[in-house]
Computed example of a mutant assay.
Amino acid sequence: MRLDGKVALVTGATSGIGTAIASRLAEEGAQVLLTGRSATHGTQLARRLPGSRFHAADLLREDAADELVASCVAAYGRIDVLVNNAAVDHTGDLVSTPTTEVRETFEVNTFATLRLMQAAGRRMMGTGGSIVNITSRLASVGVPTMGVYSASKGAVLALTRAAAVELAPYHIRVNAVAPGMTRTPLYQAWLDRLPDPAAAERDVLARIPLGRLASPEDIAAAVSYLASDDAAYITGASLPLDGGYTAQ
């Protein structure tokens, strides 16, 4: 119960990694405001997690970040933890990707994250807090067809480090968690589209020193640690959760 008494806002909480993060924070004692694309899943999850609520919001709206933080404070009286998990995927040849797709990817992955950091940061300035941004192994390594997505997550990594320094005087810690390939519904959908899913997965696993994919619970455990007072002297860090992939 190392998060007992803390209040957390988790974006992208209605599926995959986000659901695992919200569940782990609640299990460790936090009250959690959930937001995500599916109101049905969000409402069901809030019912399962003690002290949790769901607030539907479109992160593409300019005022969504302020709305979510205000809702969190109205419901619980404070905000101690922000987890920026919401994101969209993008694959495509770099030289032929339309600018509209680039903008759409950055709007969710980068600009919405920035707006939420600003809104939560303003509220945390009097009390301190922890911001955890979910980036990607692709923020640090190059993979063909993933250039736009990589750039959107690389921007968040750079922002994490700069914000950590700027917000440190207010006792606001800012860190990143960088997952590698993770066994989520999105990963499974990608695998199922391939001609030989079994062979493709063997190839993926062969590139990971630990020999397995991450689970959403692996990511959630790292987020919980960085959100807690156990990580009180950690800020500006990016924690790779990729089974050693980027260590090669």
Rank of each mutant, 00 (worst) to 15 (best):
G180H: 04
G142K: 12
R115E: 02
P197C: 13
G126H: 09
V156G: 12
R183D: 15
A162P: 08
L213N: 00
R193L: 15
T127M: 11
Y225E: 06
A168Y: 05
I131H: 01
R193Y: 08
D230E: 15
D218V: 06
M146R: 10
Q118M: 04
A220G: 02
A237F: 08
G129H: 02
T127F: 08
L213P: 01
S140A: 14
L157D: 15
A163R: 04
D229M: 11
P144A: 15
R193V: 10
A139C: 08
A164H: 07
A168W: 00
T135H: 05
A176N: 04
A178M: 02
G180Y: 02
R115M: 04
R122C: 03
D196Q: 15
H171P: 05
P216I: 01
R207M: 14
G147E: 03
A178D: 03
R137W: 05
T184S: 06
A206M: 08
V165A: 15
R123S: 04
G211K: 01
V174F: 06
N175G: 11
K153T: 09
T235E: 09
P169A: 03
I131L: 08
A168Q: 11
L194A: 12
T160A: 13
Y225D: 03
P144N: 12
E201P: 07
L159D: 12
P197G: 09
A200D: 05
A151I: 13
G154R: 04
L186R: 15
T184C: 12
D218N: 12
A163D: 10
D192I: 11
M124W: 00
L194C: 13
V132S: 06
V148T: 15
